[in-house]
Design a protein around this nucleic acid. Structure first.
Lengths: 246, 246
DNA sequence: CATCTATAGTTGTATATACAACTTATCTTT
DNA sequence: AAAGATAAGTTGTATATACAACTATAGATG
């Protein structure tokens, strides 16, 4: 019986919703009503309502009241994390090989993705480029291709990516960031087929991701692209998994 | 200048972390220290620290202090949502065709995925089965295959899924749930190729998802599987996109 | 009838206080 | 030196209070 009071109130509310007694759009008791019902202070009742609001179960309108959220999301979240962490979390062995690590001229497409066309019009624009192959128990599982904004990460080409993954290095150098990614099924180029030791015509799971720095300014939400990554996985050896509790 | 005090403190802390002044693992000022520095009550300073903890930026240890979180996640989240919502959000037209809607015997594989082998040993086990084809501007974009636990959703077969999507119907019937999903790149069966009007040998993005009800019990986390869904998308016409701010 | 006005109710922010639970370092005792 | 007790500091929970900001309703006014 050593549960905090606000947890008791949260469970009470969740139960009503799960039972269908309170349906989406319905109003739930106000802070004052709950504080009286449970004989707690208003701040304690408030905490229960606030936490359920943060987790998306309730919605609050100042002056009006608190309501059961409309779309208890059928859509769900999938976490995309570092391949090294993913492999070691499965209890397997991870190692990486560096295929390419060089400075490169960038074409129009990459230029656009890195947002370099907007501000910095240096005609001889280059970026750092890396190709790293990741193994799970000596089986190739991911080919990682990255285009890095060298203005923001000048020392990228000096790293040894058999010791630290590019992902981990970047998260060290640029602590807080924002991301943007998309997933496709493609039949990938022959070179990648070869590196991943894939059978001919096997589909390929392709994850593309851009990472931004977050420079907070008072007015606008200005961001700079740090890197653009493309991850290729053999369709018969890899799947992207996730789990979430609402 | 009408920002709440706790927001000012949050920005102050985030700035220190973004500048690298406070690095992962470092301690940040205590509630008392902050309340003195900003001339606010301890509860107000506490709110700033608590909200940053909730969002994963800080970690708190009772009795010890508050620290900058270790892994500011390089892994990120991808939202998977209803195809209908996704299409209308793009400003396009969505409609659906029901290919199959029937009761089916279930084989061992599905039985296992629906957790029906554990408790309910009725030998003639059946489930509801549906195949619905979704169109974006009259182009087929997703084939949705579902296996439904009829014990939990008895009226599934009576619905008209050209009017309401199975996803929306299920979220109405089972308000709060838990999900579990994985994504693969496959070359899919001929029948699905045909329905999606795909060119031969085009890769296919396959999303599998199980949805559970959450029956809260005091001791164990008991769940029942409501449905198992498999979503097929033509690799050259569909990509799964997401965005998240940390 | 339409419009404006007051009012009660609700959420948002903030303070001051109290005690409980836990950690860490210091001091005391053995 | 090792073990145990003490104290100071920190986070967690909870109360009581106050005022601000906003909503919706009922009532008064034109």
């Amino acid at each position: 019986m050593n549960q905090p009071q606000f947890e008791v109130i949260k469970r009470f509310i969740l139960k009503k919703i799960e039972q269908g007694t309170w349906r989406p759009g319905d109003g739930v008791p106000s802070e004052n009503a709950l504080s009286e019902k449970f004989s707690v202070s208003r701040m304690t009742a408030r905490r229960a309502l606030s936490e359920l609001t943060d987790s998306g179960v309730l919605e609050r309108v100042r002056g009006a009241g608190t309501f059961v959220a409309e779309q208890l999301p059928m859509g769900s979240f999938l976490e995309i994390q570092s391949i090294a962490r993913e492999i070691t979390a499965r209890g397997h062995r991870h190692h990486a090989e560096v295929i390419t690590l060089e400075s490169r001229k960038i074409d129009a497409k990459i230029k656009n993705l890195l947002h370099l066309d907007l501000l910095h019009l240096d005609s001889a624009a280059t970026c750092a480029y890396s190709q790293v192959l990741h193994f799970e128990n000596d089986v190739p599982i991911q080919l990682e291709e990255r285009f890095i904004n060298t203005r923001l990460v000048p020392d990228y080409l000096k790293q040894d990516f058999t010791q630290i993954t590019p992902s981990d290095y970047l998260s060290e150098v640029t602590p807080l960031s924002e991301a943007d990614h998309w997933i496709e099924a493609v039949s990938c180029p022959k070179e990648i087929h070869r590196l991943l030791k894939m059978k001919q015509a096997t589909p390929c799971l392709k994850i593309s991701r851009r990472t931004f720095t977050r420079k907070q300014s008072t007015k606008r939400h200005r961001t700079d692209v740090v890197n653009f990554a493309v991850l290729y996985h053999p369709g018969d050896r890899y799947r992207l998994g996730g789990h979430l509790n609402y």
